[in-house]
Amino acid sequence: MAAGGDHGSPDSYRSPLASRYASPEMCFVFSDRYKFRTWRQLWLWLAEAEQTLGLPITDEQIQEMKSNLENIDFKMAAEEEKRLRHDVMAHVHTFGHCCPKAAGIIHLGATSCYVGDNTDLIILRNALDLLLPKLARVISRLADFAKERASLPTLGFTHFQPAQLTTVGKRCCLWIQDLCMDLQNLKRVRDDLRFRGVKGTTGTQASFLQLFEGDDHKVEQLDKMVTEKAGFKRAFIITGQTYTRKVDIEVLSVLASLGASVHKICTDIRLLANLKEMEEPFEKQQIGSSAMPYKRNPMRSERCCSLARHLMTLVMDPLQTASVQWFERTLDDSANRRICLAEAFLTADTILNTLQNISEGLVVYPKVIERRIRQELPFMATENIIMAMVKAGGSRQDCHEKIRVLSQQAASVVKQEGGDNDLIERIQVDAYFSPIHSQLDHLLDPSSFTGRASQQVQRFLEEEVYPLLKPYESVMKVKAELCL
């Protein structure tokens, strides 16, 4: 049975990233139509530049190519590739079939990587351009969430054990800070992308030097003109047959890092959902379990974690691919890159769409948070109580021993009897502590235990987050809708 299948058929496997999760716009960027249309555009740009620099290419040939950029006979191309065992030459023939007058000058002087690699770089750039505003929107939604809850005390956790208090907004800023680093890295790697350009079979530009009869300047002009037509500021000066596969490492490393950030955020949300302090959106008709109707599973956060793990592992592909590119190139890269580049971007696209949807509907339960604080705060307040007693004339050592005994009794009630923490009640009825009984409410005010959390939130948002989001103001209103 021949390899390949009808990918629109229910009898043929289709990647869930495309069929179930990723956005239509990201799927289109990695589609065959987008790819092969870009090949034709690159052939047109090459012909236009070659004509401008004096090669015998007519206006009629150029116009014929322009008129057929979208006229792609995919069936013919597939048949040609089956016959020739070469995808680029299959599309040269297919393009030439609908451009008979231009057929002889299509791909003039070029090698397969002229269309293959340059198209990949265009796709990487455009895919990054799709991700950047999506990530900015996630940051914006979380920034709104953090600002609104900047002063809401909550129990902090280290080692997932109760620690000092923080605020809900401050905790959210930990998430935002990681995503801001990801946004900066995505922008950097996007701006650092260079075009492969017009380089020939081993990167020496020998074929173009021959076409222009040894004119170095025209060869350099050709490279520059096509690079500018493709919208790049610069091209690699040095290439082998391909652009260095280190570029793929750079791009997928940034995406993998984004995956790590999203995994951490969504894990926190899942843990908070278990504590009943916070939940992701839950639709009115949504079913959490087929057997347990009360369940409210954090399905979206779980999906993000599941896909983020996949995204983090994909960076190993370009690392290994770059390491086995012998001399000017081997074909070890080809099949692998067809999979890992598309999957990385479709996965990143999915987790950003999902995280935006989550961040637009996060639900906080202040009463649950308050109750958990009441359970733990008495123990945390013991040092403040000791200091207040010393100020009232008591002995630190005597007070410490009193607190120690009462704390152990209260802990026994919590752990052995399943009761509430009654340390404060014990202190309130103990005559030894009568000098500070009137101060206990103040000493137990949760806001006095959150330090500068709310001020940190305000400063972080104003100095770091809002300036970073400013270039994306025009796209901030787009909502994230999930079908599944």
Rank of each mutant, 00 (worst) to 15 (best):
A348K: 01
I436A: 04
R296H: 08
A77P: 09
R196T: 03
M476V: 15
S12L: 11
D268V: 02
V168T: 07
R270P: 05
V363Y: 06
D117E: 05
E277G: 02
G361H: 15
G5M: 13
A431N: 13
Q205L: 05
M380K: 05
L222R: 00
K295T: 01
C173S: 13
V478Y: 13
E80Y: 08
E343C: 07
R141G: 15
K35C: 10
D59Y: 13
K82G: 13
V226P: 01
G203D: 00
E280D: 07
T321V: 13
P153A: 10
S253H: 10
A392L: 07
R196Q: 14
G8R: 15
T204Q: 14
S257P: 05
H91N: 11
Q221W: 15
R196Y: 08
Y365W: 15
L468G: 08
V429H: 15
I62Q: 06
E360L: 06
K367L: 04
N421E: 06
M278F: 09
V405F: 14
I373R: 03
E79Y: 15
L174H: 13
K367S: 10
D430C: 09
F379N: 03
Y466D: 13
Y34K: 08
D441C: 12
K284D: 12
A143S: 13
S474N: 11
L319C: 00
W39R: 00
M89P: 00
T167Y: 00
L331W: 02
A110K: 03
L222E: 02
F74E: 13
G200L: 01
I424M: 14
M225H: 11
A150R: 11
Y13M: 15
G96M: 07
Q439H: 07
F30K: 00
L352S: 07
F433Y: 08
A381G: 04
M292A: 01
E213R: 14
E463V: 09
K75I: 10
Q458P: 07
Q241D: 00
E220T: 10
G361A: 15
P100F: 07
T166I: 07
L17N: 09
V92Y: 02
S301A: 06
I351F: 05
Q439N: 15
L84D: 14
A2Y: 15
R303S: 02
R338Q: 02
A410C: 06
A256S: 15
D117K: 00
T167G: 04
L55G: 01
V364H: 05
F95P: 01
G394N: 08
D182T: 01
Q286C: 00
L255D: 02
D87V: 00
T58S: 13
L423C: 02
I123C: 09
T38Y: 04
V226E: 02
V390Y: 06
E220R: 10
T330R: 02
G231I: 01
L209G: 10
Q41N: 12
E50D: 04
Y432F: 13
T354S: 15
A103F: 07
M278G: 04
R309G: 03
Y21A: 00
L209Y: 11
M292L: 04
G419L: 14
V115Q: 06
L53Y: 06
P435R: 11
N185A: 12
G394F: 10
G288T: 04
V92R: 01
L255Y: 04
S12W: 08
F282C: 05
V478E: 15
G259N: 00
T450Y: 06
E343D: 14
N71R: 09
S23Y: 15
N68C: 10
D178S: 07
R303F: 00
E277C: 05
L165C: 05
T239I: 10
I351E: 04
A381Y: 08
R14V: 15
N384S: 13
H437E: 07
V315I: 11
L124C: 12
L142K: 07
R309A: 05
P435K: 08
N71M: 11
E280T: 03
S23A: 13
K170H: 13
F28I: 06
F327H: 07
F282I: 13
A90S: 09
V88G: 06
T242P: 10
A77I: 15
Q161K: 03
N421T: 07
L124T: 14
C399D: 06
N353K: 12
C266K: 04
K295C: 00
Q408T: 14
P153V: 08
D6S: 11
S12R: 15
C173W: 02
D144K: 15
